[in-house]
Design a protein around this nucleic acid. Sequence first.
DNA 1: CTGTTAGCGCTTTCAC
DNA 2: GTGAAAGCGCTAACAG
Lengths: 347, 347
Amino acid sequence: MTAKKWTLKSIAAQLGVSNATVSNAFNRPDQLSKQKREEILSACHELGYFGPNQAARSLRKGTFNIVALVLPDSVEYMVSDPVASSFMRGVAKELEPQGINLLLFSGGADNVNNIVDFVDGFICYGRPRNAKLIDHLEALNKEVVAVDFELKGQASVNIDNYQAAYEVSKQALAAFHDAATQANVAILGLRLLDTDLICRVYDHHLPKLNTSIAHQRLAGFRQALQESHIALSDDKTWNIPESSERWARIAAKEALNVQPRPNVLLCMSDLIALAAAREALEQGIKVPEELKIVGFDGIDEAQLFNPAITTIHQNSEAKGQRAAELFMSKQKQQLILPFELKVGQST
Amino acid sequence: MTAKKWTLKSIAAQLGVSNATVSNAFNRPDQLSKQKREEILSACHELGYFGPNQAARSLRKGTFNIVALVLPDSVEYMVSDPVASSFMRGVAKELEPQGINLLLFSGGADNVNNIVDFVDGFICYGRPRNAKLIDHLEALNKEVVAVDFELKGQASVNIDNYQAAYEVSKQALAAFHDAATQANVAILGLRLLDTDLICRVYDHHLPKLNTSIAHQRLAGFRQALQESHIALSDDKTWNIPESSERWARIAAKEALNVQPRPNVLLCMSDLIALAAAREALEQGIKVPEELKIVGFDGIDEAQLFNPAITTIHQNSEAKGQRAAELFMSKQKQQLILPFELKVGQST
DNA sequence: CTGTTAGCGCTTTCAC
DNA sequence: GTGAAAGCGCTAACAG
C-alpha cells in the first residue's frame, strides 16, 4: 500500500481547514494556537504527509537550503585528495547543523545552469579548471565564496601562499648556508599549467604568474632562491596535473634522473613530496643527507612518514568552516588565514 | 549592470513569439523548424537568458537530475575515508557525463524530507547510522540503491563480506598450522556497535548479527577461527566507531596491552590495520614475526606501508560505478561484486 | 485566528 | 507551426 500522495491542499481539505493554516502549522508557529498546530501536525503525521513539498516551496520562496560546492575539476579527481576532503569536512561541519545540504559540482563544467536554480549559492574550492565557469560565477547574482583564489566582487578565503612557499624553501636551503655543497634545486609543481600532462615547465610555457595558488607558490620559491643567490635553470620545474602518488612518482623520477642530480626538491603538495621521497628512498638516495624535500599542506600521512616531511601546515578543515561561515554571513570579505611551517626530518 | 532577470515568458514577449515556442526551442527541437530554433536560442544567448528555470521545470516535470548520496554518518565523518572517497569517485564518474549532480546527505538525519523533493533518488553508501532513516528510505517512492547493506525491496551492491573475512583470516592463521606457537587472536572491529565509543565488544553487548558489513565480517572471522579450533574469548573484540588513525591507535594499544599479548590482529579496515601496525612497531613488536596483522579494503597506503598489509582488496571505484549504473537502469537487482585476497608481508 | 487568492516559472495539451 | 490556458505545490498578502 503505497501511501496516498498528499499535498498541502489535499491535506487541508481532509482536515477541514484552509491550506494557509496547514502551511502556517509547518512554517509559522506564531500564526496559530499551539494546540491547533499540534493537532494539525500530528494528524499530518498520522496520514503520512511529511510537510510541504520543498521544490514548490523553493520555487515560491527562492531559497533552497542547498549550497553548491564547486570543485576544481571533475568530482572524481577531487575526492582522493586528503586536503580537499578536510576542507569539505569543515564546510559540512558548519552547514549540516543549519540543515543546509551540499551539492557537488564539477569545475570542469562550462556553466552552472543545470544547478543554479536549485542552490542558494556557491562555495568554490580552488580555481575551476574551466575558465568560462569563472566568468559565469563572477556574473552570478548569487552568494559566492572563492577559496584559494579570488573572484572579482566575491568573498574569498586564502592563505598567503607566496609567503608560505618562501618560508618553506628558506628552510630547505638553510643547510647549504655555510656548507661546501651548492644547492641544486628542482621544483615539482602542481597545476602550474593548464594541461593534463606531466612535463617540464619552461619559462616560455608559463603564462604571466596569476593569483592561483600554484603560481603564488612558485613565486615564493623563486624569491627564496633568488635571495640565496641560487640559480634555477628553466628546465628544473615540473608540472603535475593532479596531486596523486602515481603522477608525482613519474615527475620525481624525471627530476632525480637529471645530472647533476638535484639535492633539493620543492614540492607543491605533501602527496607529491611523499611520492618523491618514496622514489628517492627506492633509488637508494638518502633523505635528507643527499636530498632535501619539502612539501605543502601538512597532511597526516606526511607527518607519519619516515622521515617526516618538512612542510607548510594549513588547517584545511578550519578553512572549510570559515568559508561556510562567510557564505552564511553574506559578507564580501577577503579572509587570509594563517599557516605554520612544520620542520620535519626531510630537510 | 546586473543582467535583467529573464523568464521564459518575458523572453517570449521580447522575441515576439509564444512561450510554448521558447520552451520547445530549449526542450523539444522536433517541435519547430531548425532555423527558428537557432534564431531563438541565439537571441536568448544574446539577451542573457540561459534557459528555463530548472526549479520550475522540475516542479512541473518531477525530475531533477540530482541524486542524493546518503553517507553512513555526517558528511564530515565520511570524507576522510579513502575507501568512501573512491566509491564516490566511481559514482561521480558515471553520473557526471549524464549531467546528473550529486547531493551529499548525512545518514545521521531522521528523514530525507529536506531533500527528497529535489532529487530523483538515493544512492546509499553503507547502512545509515540513523535507523529511522532506513525505514524512511524503504518506504520511499523513489529510486534507491543500497551499497554494502540491504534495503527491503530496493536494489543493492555488495561484496561477500563473510567469505572475504573468512579468507583473510585463514591467511593470517596459516602460519600457525604446524608451528609450536598457538594463535592468540584479537579483533579490531569497525562499527560493530551503534555507539561512538571505543570499547570491547562483549557477547552480551552484541546484538544478533545482522547484514551490516561489520557483522558479516565478524561472522567470517569467527568461522575461520572455529575451523582452526582457535578460541576467541569474548574480551578480545573491540569496537571502533570510525575508521581513523587516532581511534584505531587507542584500540590497538588496548589490544596489545592484553596479557598474554595477541599475536594475530584481525582488523576490519586497512586504516585500522595501519594504525595497529604503527603502534606495534613503535612498541618494538616485530611484524609479522611476533604479530600478524590483516586489514580490509586494499587502500594504496596500506600497500605502500612496510610491511605491506595483507588484506582483502575491493574495487571501491568500480562499486561506485556499478551502483550508479544500477541507479540509472532502475533495476531492482542485488549485485554481488568480486573481491581479491592480497597477501602482503604483514602475515 | 481562518479562508481566499495571486503567482513563483515552467511544460504540455489543445485548438487553431 | 503557434498561442491560450491549466496546473505542478506552495507562500504570503489581505480581508474577514
